[in-house]
Design a protein around this nucleic acid. Structure first.
Lengths: 264, 264
DNA sequence: GAGTGGTCTAGACCACTGT
DNA sequence: CAGTGGTCTAGACCACTCC
């Protein structure tokens, strides 16, 4: 038999799914629930915690618990976005370049609606990075950290960390300047200024629990995982030229990948 | 300031990451920890729960808590697996066909090392399914549920549910027989027997909390999410001919997708 | 200040594992 | 059986929100 907390959570969960408790509506307070059900306060706490983990409710300290609005799933379609970005990057037409950088979410969003904090660092490659890039430990890397936010939509918050070996890009000093952010026209366009063309991109996807900073920045309920995408860009000569990781809220993000198959 | 439970969890976490507590080693019992730290038993419980959620420890009722062995990541490379499966499916060479079915994990595993439970059902398309397939509500679908397990490796447990509109496959009665499981040579090969060639596959990936059955079947610690892949197969005439979903343990699975970019 | 959720306590009691 | 983790309780106390 399930625990008392689980049974209470299931009861409330059913009332939510049946629509008896509508999205946005406030749940009975925990004190009220304690009085009505007769179980102890900490047990009610546990039950509400289970509902939070399942994404059914949302709690604000001092206000109460509320039935969550249905999640708006954001779809990130990598296959098409990478091809489109490369298409844009192949031109010098400023209008097309102004559209968006690739690490951001919605290709249709205008540059001016996006706030970006960026930081550039000059770091040494550790064992792991050196192996991935096929360079020596201690070789220098440009580390770029972008924190992007679509105005008034905290939902689409996003943190990207990117690494590029310095040796590939020092031919264009503009690329080392954090004020010049984010690399106008996107990474692929800027790499083009130093003669690099990306031929292939590999996305590795994992789900993991968020760090405390991530939970805070992405406004994650307890129990929600993040999707972490490690993107490896390989140029026409087979070199790994950029590795970036992006983190998305696991409960609101769908990743879509298309594989075209050769004909028989 | 963090809570007492969080601080205690961080302390122990550091001792694990520093190697002071080695993988497989038993942690101090909760009673012991209560005595040593002076915090209440329930608080120690909470701290140990946090460590479980972070994947650092593993608890067995009646035995104790143990430092987890480093996770063995299993990588599922969709882009290449789909292309390979189609290659195999294009032949009638029995050896090549015997290798593996596509929904399973490791293409190198032999058929005989895999246990499969399969169930076939004849179901009516609901609103959602009808829309995805572009058919009418109430049209019949073949539902196949595979539960696969690589012998002696509970880790690679896997549950797949697949839907195919009956009208596409009733030309070959063998395909409707659950004893004929799993579709020898894989779904693509069997679809070939009724004249269908898959041209494109779309994978949609989300992370979500496991159902109780999934947590049980996949042996998931509390707080671990599952990765759910919805695979949509589209044939050379643009019809959606199969939709399947597969669920993987989020803490042990890495999905890899490759995008080839057209040259400038 | 009144009402809300969050943390912590001390202890009871139960359930599981090993000997 | 002793020793382990798991659940639950009643209540104290704190922190946050709104009026």
């Amino acid at each position: 038999m399930a625990t008392k907390a689980e049974r209470l959570a299931s009861d409330i969960g059913r009332r939510i799914e049946s629509g008896e408790l509508a999205p946005g509506e406030r749940l009975p307070t925990m004190a009220e629930m304690t009085r009505v059900t007769g179980v102890a306060g900490t047990t009610v706490q546990t039950a509400y915690g289970i509902l939070r983990d399942r994404g059914l409710i949302h709690t604000v300290h001092g206000q109460g618990s509320f039935v969550r609005e249905p999640k708006v799933m954001f779809t990130r379609n990598a296959s098409t976005r990478y091809v489109e970005e490369k298409g844009r990057a192949g031109t010098d037409d400023p209008e097309r370049l102004g559209v968006m950088i690739a690490e951001m979410d919605s290709p249709r969003v205008k540059r001016s609606d996006v706030e970006v904090d960026s930081m550039y660092f000059d770091v040494d490659a550790d064992q792991v990075m050196a192996e991935k890039f096929g360079i020596e430990v201690g070789d220098r890397l440009l580390e770029r950290i972008y924190q992007t936010r679509v105005s008034a939509k905290a939902d689409h918050m996003n943190v990207v960390t990117s690494y590029v070996p310095l040796v590939y890009i020092e031919g264009n000093p503009e690329l080392l300047d954090a004020d010049n952010e984010p690399w106008p026209g996107g990474t692929m366009h800027q790499l083009r200024t130093v003669g690099i063309e990306i031929a292939k991109i590999v996305d590795d996807v994992i789900a993991r629990p968020p760090t405390m900073q991530e939970a805070d920045a992405l406004d994650l309920e307890s129990g929600v995982a993040v999707l972490q995408i490690t993107k490896t860009s390989i140029d026409t000569e087979g070199r790994v030229v950029e590795i970036s990781t992006a983190v998305y809220p696991g409960d609101r993000t769908q990743l879509s990948y298309t594989t075209e198959l050769p004909r028989w």
